[in-house]
């Protein structure tokens, strides 16, 4: 049995992707362009309907790419809590975003609720949903070797690409530590699920402090390990005088891939991006609820 067959799934920055996923055949550079385009889309588009559709499209893509969705669901639950805060804000402080001639649709005591402010709230929330789903999609299908080899082809220095890749890798580690901390706090009676919705963001503080402390510790340990494995070694060291640090690395050589279908995807992404800019210029993607 070959090594390739043993691994049934590959670790990505956020979770895992099935070893047979078509995402693994995509070039690392295509994945970088997906990151850029998919994150630019919700920023260019104001129309919440288009953004909502885009968000769902990302989730469908995660399914098609056979990414593990277990962790993703949790972040969408967090988005639900965020929705509450956005709508409370636009209800009580919506005047500043309601425009010069706002339409009052309800009054709560002395507070007037404007339809434009609610429209703004919907736009902001759905845009966040689209952005989060795009980022989760990318993080769920991209591996450390994808990013390292893509950066290598983009001529980003070895030190910079290693640091950047490791920074992304920490995202997945956050998630696992967060779960343990949640369990540890539950053992002392703090269960976020039993808290009212309005209190949950404050309770997060109890999780974040240990999370930050542990992350700093892990970062220090990672730094020591990197040093012990000769990171930032001088170009020539005594034993290896004849071996100059070569431009092409192991990951760059053995994990780089590119095929005709990548060209098709890249051309499509570039054309779609130009199309979006044109659509925005002609006001075709504006928020109809404002």
């Amino acid at each position: 049995m070959s090594a390739q067959q043993i691994a049934t799934r590959y670790r990505t920055f956020f979770s895992y992707v099935d070893a047979r996923s078509i995402a693994n055949r995509m070039s690392p550079i295509t994945k970088i362009l997906i990151l850029l385009f998919f994150n630019a889309y919700p920023i260019i588009i104001d129309n919440p309907i288009y953004n909502a559709l885009f968000g769902f499209f990302n989730i469908i893509l995660m399914k098609i790419f056979k990414a593990t969705l277990m962790h993703v669901e949790k972040y969408f639950k967090v988005l639900m809590t965020l929705a509450l805060f956005i709508f409370v804000s636009v209800i009580f402080f919506g005047r500043s975003v309601a425009g010069p001639s706002p339409t009052v649709i309800a009054t709560i005591g002395p507070v007037e609720v404007y339809s434009q402010a609610l429209g703004f709230g919907v736009m902001v929330y759905v845009r966040m949903f689209a952005l989060v789903s795009a980022m989760l999609l990318w993080l769920s299908i991209t591996t450390t070797s994808d990013l390292m080899s893509a950066f290598e082809k983009m001529n980003i220095s070895y030190v910079a690409r290693t640091y950047l890749t490791m920074a992304f890798r920490f995202i997945g580690m956050f998630d696992s530590d967060f779960n343990t901390i949640q369990d540890a706090q539950k053992a002392r009676g703090l269960d976020i699920k039993s808290q009212p919705l309005w209190r949950r963001p404050f309770v997060f503080g109890y999780y974040l402090i240990p999370l930050v402390a542990i992350t700093i510790k892990k970062a220090i340990d990672a730094g020591v390990t990197m040093e012990s494995r000769a990171f930032k070694a001088p170009l020539k060291i005594k034993l290896l005088e004849e071996k100059a640090m070569l431009k092409e690395s192991y990951v760059g050589k053995y994990y780089w891939r590119y095929s005709g279908s990548d060209t098709v995807i890249i051309v499509t992404l570039v054309l779609a991006f130009i199309g979006l800019l044109v659509a925005r210029f002609y006001g075709l993607v504006a928020n109809p609820f404002m």
Partner: peptide, 11 residues
């Protein structure tokens, strides 16, 4: 591969 790569070995 990380260590040997840092030491400048060819891929």
């Amino acid at each position: 591969a990380f260590g040997p790569q840092n030491l400048g070995y060819r891929p």
